[in-house]
Design a protein around this nucleic acid. Structure first.
Length: 608
RNA sequence: GGGGACGUGGUGUAGCGGUUAACAUACUGCCCUGUCAAGGCAGAGAUCGCGGGUUCGAACCCCGUCGUCCCCGCCA
């Protein structure tokens, strides 16, 4: 080894020890006859000091060194002189007095700071990803990610799980997303599909009798990117035989708690994790992956508002459309001076902003009431006058309204109300400073509807995938009222992200076959695509179920990062490109020839 | 496919119709033996993403285009 110690490990007890360090110049402070170099490696930073008088050759090398030069330093550990210790640095009690310095490699001036936390343009970060990855933030995240995966492997290994790899070159997996295709050279005109998840394969492993399988699996979905979504991503994929919902939930909940506490150092806000039915989640939070770090829950006041004098609410209530209220605590208070209430232009602007926001959901408007700060002040807002004093009292009691709160009313068809609630919660939480990126708040969402109606295609779509079993008591509903049937699906949400989702699977061929016509697939096609599954189902399938958890997203939440790219070493841009290596790129014509492919790009696309 | 934001020395920002295009930092040189975001002095570095238009005059206004990001659609 070119080093005997790392730059993170030396302490006072190493005083006098002779060491060999190697790393990058993090910073250099040239005092003339004395040069200080902060030498950095993955483990930390150690101050190297070079004295011109005692080590003239080393001093000359240090003098010519610049940021990010790669150096090897031979020297002796010394406790820093009285008054020069640095408490900020883990190795700050000591320094290494250099006797020899070898320049292992010079470096160009980096295009951005390695030694400073600063926002840098994404293009630059991606183009020089190997430099971006040197920065402390990325090192922290990438190492945290490693620890998460390592913890998961150990946790599952201790519980007798077997890690089994499944193919990347496979065939279309019915998760509903667009497939990435890979042409076959040996079978001209045929294509592999990259797996959207190892769903079928893990179920077949249950048929195969492994009982407890997991995999840290790469998955691929050819859909547009988002802040929490990349076209290729990593999942903890897991399946167990002879289990019920509770077994899977218990296993994962235990794992998530330990991951948060032992690996990420964050205690989950509520333990055990709260469980919400899908309906509860939608009614209270307007989302099936609610962020429960903050309250801001929607309260149903349809009955009350239906009796008010406000015609819109009366009509909607009569038509079965809900009226919901979100209490925004202290929203009326001024930003600079919380003892003063917003009024006039300030209030107008605030409400305009909220109204613009909720219009993106298709909602027509936002009614509101503001509770004055002073004892006997007037309730402000356009709809106050439509409620009697008694109605207002009851309303305020129901939502626990306080002085300075603004109550936001939304009423529309149910789906729109949900969306408004979701959008408002997220916005208000941010605006009121209720979001803490150091907190993790998990909750389970269960009792999803088995299907939702696809208006366009005029058919039922599975709300998870076609292998999800209905909850046992709802199986008869498949024949009578599929829309009312609940699936055995369970999702785990954390901080407003879905971090895991799974279900108990169908393990009977009859029931599985029943699914195809319901979701608008004819049997012939189903047999073609999934014949191997149906056939396997005839050879003694154990009851089984499992779950999958997006590792990238989980790492993002545990790291408190706002974007999934921050926990992926080499992520893709929103167009799915790698700006560093220039992927995707045009293939060599000979490659296409070998694959019997011809590229036909429409003219308007070519011009670009 | 749609909506929005951004693009100014290497980096981060200011400037938003007439500026010598400002500031911080990085960079280069010199000085300096206890610094740690070192300090001091000097210096170099920008046709303001690209193309077109409006104007006596454009970094600034308009149109287009490219790129990045956020969101909807899509995707669980």
């Amino acid at each position: 080894m070119l080093k005997t110690q790392t730059c993170g490990e030396l302490r006072s007890e190493h005083d006098g020890q002779s060491v060999l360090l190697a790393g990058w110049v993090h910073r250099r402070r040239d005092q003339g006859g004395l040069i200080f170099i902060d030498l950095r490696d993955r483990w930390g930073i150690t101050q190297v000091v070079v004295n011109q008088e005692t080590a003239p050759e080393a001093h000359a090398v240090a003098s010519g060194a610049r940021n990010e030069y790669v150096l090897q330093v031979k020297g002796a550990v010394r406790i820093r002189p009285e008054g020069t210790a640095n408490d900020e640095l883990e190795t700050g009690a000591i320094e290494v007095v250099a006797s020899e310095i070898v320049l292992l490699n010079a470096a160009k001036t980096p295009p951005f700071y390695i030694n400073k936390e600063e926002k840098i343009d994404e293009v630059e970060r991606m183009r020089y990803r190997y430099l971006d990855l040197r920065r402390p933030r990325m090192q922290r995240n990438i190492i945290l990610r490693h620890k998460i995966v390592k913890f998961i492997r150990d946790y599952l290994d201790e519980r007798d799980f077997v890690e089994i790899e499944t193919p990347i070159l496979f065939k279309t997996t019915p998760e509903g997303a667009r497939d990435f295709l890979v042409p076959s050279r040996l079978m001209p005109g045929h294509f592999y599909a990259l797996p959207q998840s190892p769903q079928q394969l893990k179920q077949l492993l249950m048929v195969a009798g492994y009982e407890r399988y997991f995999q840290i699996a790469r998955c691929f979905r050819d859909e547009d990117l988002r802040g929490d979504r990349q076209p290729e991503f990593t999942q903890l994929d897991l399946e167990m035989s002879f289990v019920q919902r509770e077994d899977v939930i218990d296993l994962i909940e235990g794992m998530m708690i330990e991951l948060s506490e032992k690996v990420a150092g964050k205690t989950p806000l509520i333990k055990p994790f709260p469980r919400l039915t899908y309906t509860e989640a939608m009614e209270k939070y307007g989302s099936d992956k609610p962020d429960i770090r903050y309250d801001l829950t929607a309260v149903d006041v349809t009955d009350l508002a239906g009796k008010s004098g406000f015609q819109v609410f009366v009509d909607n209530a009569a038509a079965g459309k809900p009226v919901k209220v979100i209490r925004a605590p202290g929203l009326l208070r001024g930003k600079e001076d919380p003892t003063k209430a917003l009024s006039g232009e300030g209030l107008k602007r605030l409400m305009k902003e909220l109204e613009d926001l909720i219009r993106t959901t298709g909602a027509k408007g936002l009614a509101w009431m503001a509770l004055p700060l002073e004892e006997n002040g007037e309730v402000k807002g356009p709809i106050g006058k439509f409620f009697t004093v008694e109605q207002k009292v009851e309303l305020f009691e129901r939502v626990d309204a306080q002085a300075g709160d603004i109550l936001l009313f939304t009423s529309d068809k149910r789906e729109t109300v949900y969306e408004v609630v979701n959008v408002l919660r997220r916005h208000l939480a941010e605006a009121l400073g209720l979001v803490d990126s150091d907190t993790v708040a998990f909750c389970w969402v269960i009792d999803f509807p088995m299907f939702y109606w696809n208006e366009e295609e005029q058919r039922w779509d599975p709300s998870q995938h076609m292998f999800t079993s209905p909850v046992p008591e709802d199986i008869p509903l498949l024949d009578t009222d599929p829309g009312a049937a609940r699936g055995s699906q369970y999702d785990l949400a954390c901080n407003g992200y879905e971090v895991a989702g799974g279900s108990i699977r169908i393990h009977s061929r009859e029931l599985q076959e029943k699914m195809f016509p319901l979701i608008g697939q004819d049997m012939e096609h189903a047999r073609e695509e999934f014949g191997h599954m149906l056939e396997a189902f005839e050879y003694g399938v154990p009851p089984h179920g499992g779950i999958a958890s997006g590792i990238d997203r989980l790492a993002m939440v545990l790291a408190g990062e706002p974007n999934i790219r921050e926990v992926i070493a080499f992520p893709k841009t929103q167009k799915g490109a790698d700006i560093m290596a220039h992927a995707p790129s045009e293939p060599d014509p000979r490659q296409l020839e070998e694959l019997y492919l011809r590229v036909v790009v429409p003219e308007e696309e070519q011009e670009q």
